[in-house]
Amino acid sequence: MVLRVAGKVVMPSGVIRQGCVEIDGERITAVAEYPSIRDGHWIVPGFVDMHTHGGGGHTFTTGDPESARRAADFHLGHGTTTLLASLVSSPAESMRSATAAYAPLVAERVLAGIHYEGPYLSELRCGAQHPEHLRDADPDELTELLDLGGGTVRMVTLAPERHGALDAIKLLVSRGVVAAVGHTDATYEQTRAAIDAGATVGTHVFNGMRTPHHREPGPVYALLAAPDVVCELVADGVHLHDGTLSFAASVTGPDRAALITDAMSAAGMTDGDYELGGQAVVVTDGVARLRQPDGGPGAIAGSTLTMDAALRRAVAAGIAIPDASRMASATPARALGLDGQLGSLLPGWRADLVVLDDNLQVVRVMRAGAWVD
């Protein structure tokens, strides 16, 4: 039976002010203009979050499949129809067990894959990553993990200045895995070498990176300028000032900027005490930071953001709705090699969509042609 969803349809080319998306089964069959339609809701593609550690009180970082399933369900309720489970730096055995545990969830399409944020990261720019678990890139360890995942691992973040990092990037690319640059103290030249080796994503650009300077541009300028690199941006007003968000998006354009949440388990929860990768986190006024030995706040520890809130923040910062929608869906989907399947409202693509009111609040969510309860 054909299902029709009407409203202001956001297409890759812009907005159909009075449009309709037709769905049959899991797929979109047509998107057309219907002049008689007067439904004022926005219809945007389902959000694609390529970097999230958990939400709704549940986490991906422990390797617990039930917790992962519930975290994915939480974000689905906020319009994220596709996401990666992001792990943090941890011992090799923990990485192996989480990879094996999440492979069935990838097969079920609960998750689109696993993202290793570490452990081949900079001690100087580790942020909320546990410093005891950081290490140089190990091709044998990486090969074992990729073999174990059997296609489950979709992206790995590493610092290009670490020993063996460039060879690791080449290994990842040869295996069809996205190599991302992040948590790095690399110079501009070292970052360019990583891009030349095949890195195609900048992990939460500006955050966890050497501060840009006009005489030493570092990784930020290299990533923003690279035509084949998609730059992740955390649009929560904490990781990035709104002016920085709009500036970065204007440099990259919407086809190279991806909105992410970098959310941890506290997303959608009250202020209080939480945990991330074995480290204590305190959330105050919705901002997550490591708890210091004296009890005070330390480094930013992920976020409490959801993708619908990120979209609203981007639009409030001056980014047009069609561009912000592309940054939340089509661009991350393409960065992960999922374009042609999802991320846009196009015939033949999976019927993932979000219905938003005029305030860009979620009204309904559809995934694979079925409304989410």
Score class of each variant (00 low, 15 high):
217 P>E: 13
372 V>W: 14
181 V>D: 08
130 H>M: 01
293 P>K: 14
163 H>G: 10
303 S>W: 02
42 W>L: 08
288 A>C: 01
60 F>T: 00
352 D>N: 14
114 I>D: 05
160 P>M: 12
372 V>Y: 14
72 A>C: 13
152 T>R: 04
12 P>G: 02
347 P>H: 06
308 D>Y: 10
211 T>F: 03
7 G>M: 02
141 E>A: 13
55 G>Y: 11
240 L>K: 05
208 G>L: 05
37 I>F: 06
212 P>A: 06
299 A>W: 08
108 E>K: 05
145 L>N: 10
114 I>G: 04
36 S>R: 14
270 T>E: 15
371 W>F: 15
238 V>I: 13
202 G>N: 08
353 L>N: 02
4 R>E: 13
133 H>P: 03
155 M>E: 11
217 P>N: 06
32 A>N: 11
168 A>C: 14
13 S>C: 12
290 L>M: 04
190 Q>P: 10
133 H>G: 04
275 E>R: 10
320 A>I: 06
176 G>H: 03
263 A>V: 04
230 V>S: 00
52 T>R: 09
299 A>C: 08
89 S>P: 01
45 P>L: 10
340 G>L: 05
123 E>I: 04
82 T>L: 04
91 P>C: 07
83 L>N: 05
236 D>H: 07
275 E>G: 01
128 A>L: 07
322 P>I: 14
94 S>L: 05
110 V>T: 15
246 S>F: 08
335 A>K: 03
277 G>Y: 07
125 R>I: 01
69 R>L: 15
218 G>F: 02
22 E>V: 04
63 G>S: 11
220 V>Q: 03
3 L>I: 02
368 A>Q: 08
179 A>I: 09
72 A>D: 13
165 A>K: 00
154 R>Q: 09
193 A>F: 09
133 H>S: 07
104 P>S: 09
317 A>K: 07
143 T>G: 14
281 V>L: 05
14 G>L: 13
